[in-house]
Amino acid sequence: MKTPRILLLPGWQNSGPDHWQSRWERLHGDERVEQHDWDWPRRGDWMARLDEVLLQSDAPAVLVAHSLGCQLVAGWAEHSQHTARVKGALLVAPPDTEREATPPQLHNWRPIRRQRLPFPSIAVISSDDPFCTPERATQMAADWGASVVMAGPRGHLNADSGLGDWPEGRDFLLSLGRSSQLQA
């Protein structure tokens, strides 16, 4: 079996240089899925781009999503014919795009897709995420069939959370790889 590609799926406005996803890209050679429009993201465009990147290689992939990237995984998995290429997903800080305070740029990410994911997944949830209550995040994870890891009060689990290289997150990724019998 080929070693899986680790595909990084940043959220709205991309992940900056101090974000753990950017650090993983530099440290581990993980591959960022670049989107055409980070500021006004359209769900269908982002889903099509993920399919494009997955089809560039016959190697399996593990998805590592942050924020809106989690909603991308859920929407993509509901519609794509290529879900068998994905062996697992790490879903970090899923946002509630249905909440009243959602910026207008993200309204097309409604409704939240809640179909069970066809691959193993872990959702990492902060108890004080400003973009989603722990209850809503836990319910999304349950709907997706994801195992839940409560990270405590860590904000949006981004650069502002002080995670640095976030070795705990890498351990979650590695445990996901082991659970799906992959080397990550």
Rank of each mutant, 00 (worst) to 15 (best):
G69S: 09
Q35D: 07
A61S: 15
P95W: 10
V92E: 07
E78S: 15
S80E: 11
R99Y: 05
V64I: 15
Q71Y: 01
K87T: 08
S67Y: 05
A93S: 15
P60W: 08
W46N: 09
L63H: 02
S80Q: 10
R49I: 09
V86F: 01
E52K: 10
V64E: 04
A59G: 00
D39Q: 15
A59H: 09
H28F: 14
D37G: 04
Q71R: 14
G75H: 12
V62R: 05
A74D: 00
H66F: 11
A74C: 02
A77P: 03
Q81G: 14
R42M: 13
G44I: 08
R49S: 09
A74L: 06
A89N: 02
D37R: 10
L63P: 03
P60K: 08
L72H: 03
H28E: 14
G75Y: 10
G75N: 08
P60V: 10
C70F: 01
W40E: 15
Q35A: 03
D45N: 13
E34C: 05
H66N: 11
A84Q: 13
R32T: 14
V64M: 06
V86L: 06
H79E: 15
R99A: 15
H79N: 13
E31H: 10
P94E: 05
A74H: 07
G69Q: 11
A77T: 09
W40M: 14
T97C: 13
A48H: 12
V92K: 05
V86P: 00
V33A: 07
V86H: 04
R99W: 06
A77E: 06
G29I: 03
S57L: 04
D39N: 13
M47L: 13
G75I: 13
L50Q: 06
